[in-house]
């Protein structure tokens, strides 16, 4: 079976083209799905096996990135979204999509899928938007199906609001224990594994996220979101320093994430 991926679009989402492309490159079939087509009943999420909320500037990031799109989903598509997650189907949110998942309470989330916001993505300490490359390291003990088997990848970050924080410090410990703080910024010159709770200097940590968190998953490991853009490193010639490296050309370091999800659906 070829998994079908609903790649959401509309209202300022703008990474849907490449997000569709990486799922297609991973062997899935991807549809561009305007959010309103789900709201008006033209399409139904239950016909899809994977949902992706791509990056972009939904509603211009006004009133906080991801908030207004989060509300459209939380109020307009509440049952469809909860049903999708409870059925155990993989969901990914990238950059603005991650912000949407956090603001609507799907991430870091809870067992009941209560859609209660418990964390946030605050303005970078630099105070502005930046596009730069970072190195991510993944927690090998995480239940996250998207990052299984991954150690490190290099990816661009492109955001102004990516500093992962919460107002309850106990939650950070709990999420760490359950493997939900799955992706973290690391110093590329260090040895794997080296993810640290102490905030790394700028710009190794581009936004000064707490515990260097770049991405988190929900307790089941099926819902995953991250600020960096793995879909932007789908081919070796898109790397930041590829002209300095002698590697064979082919799929880029970001692709493993999408292969993981497609394989998860195909295998189950």
């Amino acid at each position: 079976m070829t998994p079908r991926v609903a790649v959401l679009s509309g209202f300022g989402i703008n990474c849907e083209t490449e997000t569709m492309a990486v799922f297609e490159m991973s062997g899935a079939h991807a549809d561009r799905v305007h959010v309103n087509r789900l709201v008006n009943g033209d399409l139904n999420l239950s016909d899809y096996q994977i949902m992706a909320i791509p990056g972009g500037f939904s509603f211009g990031d006004h009133l906080g990135s991801g908030r207004l799109m989060g509300n459209r989903l939380r109020f307009g598509l509440r049952d469809q979204v909860r049903g999708f997650v409870r059925e155990g189907k993989p969901v990914i949110g990238i950059c603005n999509g991650f912000q949407v998942l956090v603001k609507m309470g799907l991430l870091p989330g809870d067992e009941e899928v209560s859609l209660t916001q418990t964390a946030s993505l605050a303005l970078n300490d630099s105070g502005h938007y930046e596009n730069r490359w970072a190195t991510l390291e993944f927690d090998s003990k995480s239940p996250c199906i998207w990052t299984a088997g991954l150690e490190r990848i290099r990816v661009p970050v492109r955001h102004g609001e990516g500093k992962f924080v919460t107002d309850d410090p106990n939650l950070m410990d709990r999420w760490a224990e359950s493997g939900q703080l799955v992706a973290r910024y690391v110093d590329p010159s260090s040895e794997y594994p080296s993810a640290s709770d102490n905030i790394l200097p700028y710009p190794i940590s581009p936004n000064q996220s707490w515990r260097n968190v770049a991405g988190v998953c929900d307790p089941t490991g099926l819902v995953f979101g991250l600020m960096p853009h793995p879909e932007a490193n789908h081919s070796t010639w898109l790397g930041a320093t590829w002209t300095r490296e002698d590697n064979e050309h082919g799929q880029g370091e970001g692709m493993a994430i999408f292969h993981n999800a497609v394989n998860h659906v195909t295998d189950s």
């Binding site: 596009n131 879909e231 930041a240 300095r244």
Partner: peptide, 21 residues
């Protein structure tokens, strides 16, 4: 840096290069 130069995932030679980007 504060311009997104990589959206659409097509950027081969970027505004920045070199070992330290």
């Amino acid at each position: 840096r504060s311009y997104d130069h990589e959206v659409i995932a097509q950027s081969v030679i970027k505004p920045f290069c070199g070992t330290n980007h």
